[in-house]
Amino acid sequence: NKFNKELGWATWEIFNLPNLNGVQVKAFIDSLRDDPSQSANLLAEAKKLNDAQA
């Protein structure tokens, strides 16, 4: 379904953000699993944090 596809894509993108540490990645992935409907918002937050830590 739509959420599974978005969840998978967001998970892959978060895993590939180079400036996040393992704890941050795990926290974002756990949040995605808790509420897949928020995948776009969580991915945006992860990208912002990644950019801030560059």
Score class of each variant (00 low, 15 high):
Asn4Ser: 09
Asn19Thr: 03
Lys48His: 06
Ile14Tyr: 03
Phe3Asn: 13
Glu45Thr: 07
Leu42Glu: 00
Val25Ile: 13
Leu7Val: 10
Leu32Ile: 11
Ser31Asn: 09
Ile14His: 01
Ser39Ile: 14
Ala40Tyr: 08
Asn1Tyr: 02
Asp34Arg: 11
Ala44Asn: 08
Glu45Arg: 07
Asp35Tyr: 07
Pro18Arg: 05
Leu42Ile: 15
Asn4Phe: 12
Glu6Met: 11
Lys26Arg: 10
Leu7Arg: 02
Pro18Val: 08
Ile29Gly: 01
Asn19Met: 05
Glu6Pro: 04
Arg33Gly: 04
Glu45Met: 11
Phe28Arg: 00
Ala10Pro: 07
Glu13Pro: 04
Val25Glu: 01
Asn21Pro: 01
Lys26Trp: 08
Ala46Val: 02
Ser31Thr: 06
Gln53Phe: 04
Ala44Trp: 09
Asp51Tyr: 06
Leu17Gly: 00
Asp34His: 12
Asn19Lys: 02
Ile29Pro: 00
Leu7Pro: 04
Gln53His: 04
Leu42Ser: 02
Val25Phe: 02
Ile14Arg: 00
Ala54Asp: 07
Lys5His: 11
Leu43Lys: 01
Leu42Val: 14
Asn50Ala: 02
Phe28Ile: 05
Leu42Cys: 05
Lys2Pro: 13
Lys26Phe: 05
Asp34Asn: 13
Pro18Phe: 08
Pro36Gly: 03
Asn19Ile: 01
Ile29Met: 07
Glu6His: 06
Asp30Pro: 01
Arg33Gln: 09
Ala52Arg: 14
Gln53Gly: 04
Phe15Thr: 14
Lys2Gln: 13
Trp9Thr: 10
Lys5Val: 11
Arg33Val: 09
Asn21Val: 05
Arg33Ala: 08
Ala40Pro: 05
Asp35Gln: 08
Leu42Gln: 02
Ser39Glu: 06
Ala54Met: 08
Lys47Ser: 03
Pro36Gln: 03
Ala27Tyr: 14
Gly8Val: 15
Asn50Glu: 01
Phe28Cys: 04
Lys5Ile: 06
Phe28Trp: 02
Asn50Arg: 01
Pro36Asp: 02
Asp34Ala: 14
Leu32Val: 04
Gly8Asp: 15
Trp9Gln: 14
Asp30Ile: 14
Lys5Gly: 13
Leu20Ile: 02
Lys2Asp: 15
Ile29Glu: 02
Ser37Glu: 07
Thr11Val: 15
Phe3Trp: 09
Lys48Arg: 13
Asp34Met: 12
Ala46Gly: 01
Lys47Gln: 10
Asn19Gln: 03
Trp12Cys: 15
Asn21Met: 08
Pro18Thr: 13
Leu7Met: 08
Ala10Arg: 03
Leu7Cys: 12
Ala10Thr: 11
Ile29Lys: 01
Glu45Ile: 10
Lys2Tyr: 11
Ser37Arg: 07
Val23His: 13
Asp30Gly: 05
Asn16Asp: 05
Ser37Ile: 04
Ser39Lys: 05
Glu45Ser: 06
Leu20Asp: 00
Val23Ile: 11
Lys5Met: 09
Ala44Phe: 07
Trp9Cys: 15
Ile29Arg: 02
Pro36Lys: 02
Ala54Phe: 07
Val23Cys: 15
Asp35Ala: 06
Ala52Pro: 01
Pro18His: 06
Ser37Ala: 10
Lys48Ala: 13
Gly22Pro: 14
Lys26Pro: 00
Ser39Leu: 10
Ile29Tyr: 05
Leu20Thr: 00
Trp9Ser: 10
Asn41Pro: 10
Glu6Val: 08
Lys48Leu: 07
Gln53Trp: 03
Asn4His: 10
Leu49Arg: 02
Ser31Met: 13
Gln38Gly: 05
Phe15Glu: 15
Ala44Ile: 09
Asp35Val: 04
Glu13Val: 14
Ile29Trp: 04
Lys48Val: 05
Val23Trp: 14
Ile29Phe: 06
Ala52Gly: 06
Glu45Leu: 11
Thr11Lys: 09
Asp34Gln: 12
Ser39Gln: 07
Glu45Ala: 13
Asn41Phe: 13
Ala46Gln: 01
Glu6Leu: 12
Pro18Cys: 13
Arg33Trp: 15
Phe28Ala: 00
Leu49Ser: 02
Asn41Gly: 07
Phe3His: 12
Phe28Gly: 00
Ile14Asn: 02
Gln53Tyr: 06
Val25His: 03
Lys26Tyr: 07
Pro36Glu: 02
Ala52Asp: 06
Ser37Val: 04
Asn50Leu: 02
Lys2Leu: 08
Asn21Tyr: 07
Asn21His: 07
Leu43Pro: 00
Thr11Ile: 15
Leu42Tyr: 04
Glu6Arg: 04
Phe15Lys: 11
Leu49Asn: 02
Asn41Asp: 10
Gly8Pro: 05
Ala44Glu: 14
Ile29Ser: 02
Glu6Ser: 09
Ile29Asp: 01
Glu13Tyr: 15
Lys26Gln: 10
Ala27Pro: 00
Asn16Ile: 08
Ala10Asp: 07
Phe15Cys: 15
Ala27Asn: 10
Leu32Ser: 00
Asn41Gln: 12
Leu43Ala: 03
Ala54Gln: 11
Ile14Met: 03
Leu43Gly: 01
Asn4Asp: 15
Ala54Val: 08
Ile29Cys: 10
Leu7His: 03
Gly22Ala: 13
Leu32Thr: 01
Asn50Asp: 03
Asp51Ala: 11
Phe28Thr: 00
Asn41Tyr: 11
Gln53Ala: 05
Gly8Arg: 14
Leu17Asp: 01
Leu43Gln: 02
Pro36Phe: 04
Asn19Leu: 03
Asn4Glu: 15
Asn1Gly: 14
Ser39Gly: 08
Pro36Tyr: 04
Arg33His: 10
Ser31Ala: 14
Ser31Glu: 09
Leu32Asp: 00
Leu20Ser: 00
Leu49Val: 08
Asp35Leu: 06
Lys26Leu: 11
Lys2Thr: 07
Leu17Cys: 06
Asp30Tyr: 03
Asp51Pro: 00
Leu42Pro: 00
Lys2Ala: 13
Val25Pro: 00
Asn4Leu: 12
Ala40His: 11
Leu49Ala: 03
Ser39His: 11
Ala46Asn: 00
Leu49Lys: 03
Asn16Gln: 10
